[in-house]
Nucleic acid binder design. Structure first.
Length: 452
DNA sequence: CGTACATGAGCACAAACAAA
DNA sequence: TTTGTTTGTGCTCATGTACG
């Protein structure tokens, strides 16, 4: 039987959409696509296929039924099924995509519409030789129609699709595509402003004040969740999405230990476990806050924010908004969630922690490059001061500098954070001299860590 | 929810430097 | 001058976050 369960379901859906005001021409095009799909299907109709049908077309496999991404999802699955992947394998790929899946699906929908308009078929996509020509024409077609961000996304998505279809890389990404995209990408690049971040103390003082409310049992569960979430972000410098999918292990909470187990999606990716310890100051102790929150008992303890398909607790959106609320209440407005991470890291820098310690803690893999772009913005003014100072007092000798010690030392102290690049360089040199030194273990005990 | 915007890792390339 | 090596920089793309 060639009419697969999923296909017939989609057919129904399509006619439904057609009635909802689809223009005639595109309806016709859909038919060519559908027709081609059946043609492609037929030679593959083996006994294997029978098994696939039941497992790949059950209801919950369609994430975007009746939504924007529907045709994209359809296209992707058609292509990959025809490539010989099982439904389960495809689902595996989709699961890995996390946040990206939504975007890929929507973006592929645009491509599916374009391809249908070109009277293209799935079969043609499968046998396409020089994929970059298709991509290039597609990009050119989109240029007058869509925003820069949309076209960049479209280009990324379509090359991902071709990659998954095992087309050679040099037929997907080459100079033609690069040049076509250049203008768009340049326009989309953010202007690097100098931004002054808020001080962590501002947030901590606010939370500290809230602790009285907490102790008097006047905070509701919602508030406790938000503050706990914020504190976890401050202490662990995990990203929002990472905290949101985290599992809290509270077996040793009475000894003042909570383990946060999660996954990082940004590289270096993989499982991460961070331990929260009880802090001396109980008003801003994350353990105390989490404890009070759990005592409210509205959530299942081991899966605090986790969302699976059935049971939704706090989505990333909700978490993000909650934390922003806390920031706003603390008087920190107009900053995004990631600024917590930056504020935390900047705070440790101000306190003269060594760069290497900081980056081991924050999980950056190439510290100097990351910092160069993101965490030195607060110091631009200080640098300006230094330069101006040099201009005003060109001929100071050592004793005169000492006379001006208060000014100089304050500048020096603030500027000490600027030494990170040199410290890193020293670290690299040491590594070469002592080749047996293990990179991962060595950072903690290495003498560079003692630089203050 | 769909889309726009932002971030960060890794890569490729080029500048700078060193050695032949 | 040519060739080899190290260091620095910009670009790309996957993915996180914000916005309307």
């Amino acid at each position: 039987m060639q009419g697969r369960v999923g296909a017939s379901k989609r057919d129904n859906n399509c006619t439904g959409m057609g009635r909802a005001g689809m223009v005639d021409s595109s309806n016709a095009n859909r038919n060519t696509l559908e027709g081609a799909r059946r043609l492609v299907k037929r030679p593959q109709g083996r006994s294997m296929d029978e098994e696939e049908q039941s497992e790949t077309t059950s209801m919950e496999d369609w994430d975007f039924l009746g939504r924007r991404g529907e045709k994209g999802e359809q296209l992707l699955k058609e292509c990959l099924l025809n490539k010989g992947l099982t439904g389960q394998s495809i689902q595996g790929i989709i699961d890995v995509w996390h946040e990206s899946w939504k975007r890929h699906a929507c973006s592929l929908t645009i491509f599916a519409e374009y391809w249908a308009q070109q009277s293209g078929t799935v079969l043609q996509l499968l046998t396409l030789e020089q994929s970059y020509l298709t991509i290039a024409n597609y990009i050119t077609y989109l240029k007058p129609l869509e925003s820069d961000a949309c076209i960049i996304q479209a280009s990324n998505t379509i090359s991902t699709l071709f990659e998954l279809m095992d087309k050679p890389m040099n037929s997907i990404k080459n100079k033609v595509i690069e040049y076509l995209m250049k203008q768009l990408v340049n326009r989309a690049t953010k202007v690097r402003n100098e931004i002054r971040y808020w001080k962590l103390s501002q947030l901590m003082q606010y939370i500290s004040k809230q602790a009285t409310l907490r102790d008097e049992n006047k905070s509701n569960s919602n508030q406790l969740t938000k503050v706990s979430l914020t504190l976890i972000m401050v202490y662990t410098v995990l990203r929002m999405a990472e905290v949101q999918m985290a599992e809290l292990r509270i077996g040793y909470i009475n000894q003042g230990d909570i383990v946060i187990a999660t996954m990082t999606m940004k590289k270096p990716r993989g499982p991460v476990e961070k331990t929260l310890k009880a802090a001396q100051n109980r008003t801003i102790c994350s353990i105390r806050w989490i404890q009070s929150w759990l005592e409210k008992g509205e959530l299942r303890k081991e899966q605090v924010w986790r969302i699976n398909r059935k049971e939704k607790v706090w989505s990333t959106d909700k978490c993000s908004k909650g934390v922003k609320r806390v920031l706003a209440n603390a008087g920190i407005e107009g900053y995004n969630i990631t600024s917590i991470r930056k504020a935390s890291i900047s705070e440790t820098m101000d306190k003269n922690m060594t760069q290497i310690q900081i980056f081991r803690w924050s999980g950056h893999s190439d510290a100097s490059a990351t910092v160069r772009v993101n965490y030195d913005k607060n110091y631009k003014d200080i640098i300006r001061n230094i330069l101006e100072y040099a201009g005003k007092q060109p001929n100071l000798n050592e004793s005169e500098i000492n006379n001006n010690y208060t000014l100089v030392s304050s500048i020096r102290r603030d500027a000490s954070s600027l030494n990170y690049v040199q410290i890193n360089r020293e670290a690299r040199i040491s590594e070469r001299i002592v080749p047996q030194w293990d990179r991962r273990e060595g950072y903690a005990s290495h003498p560079v860590d003692n630089v203050s």
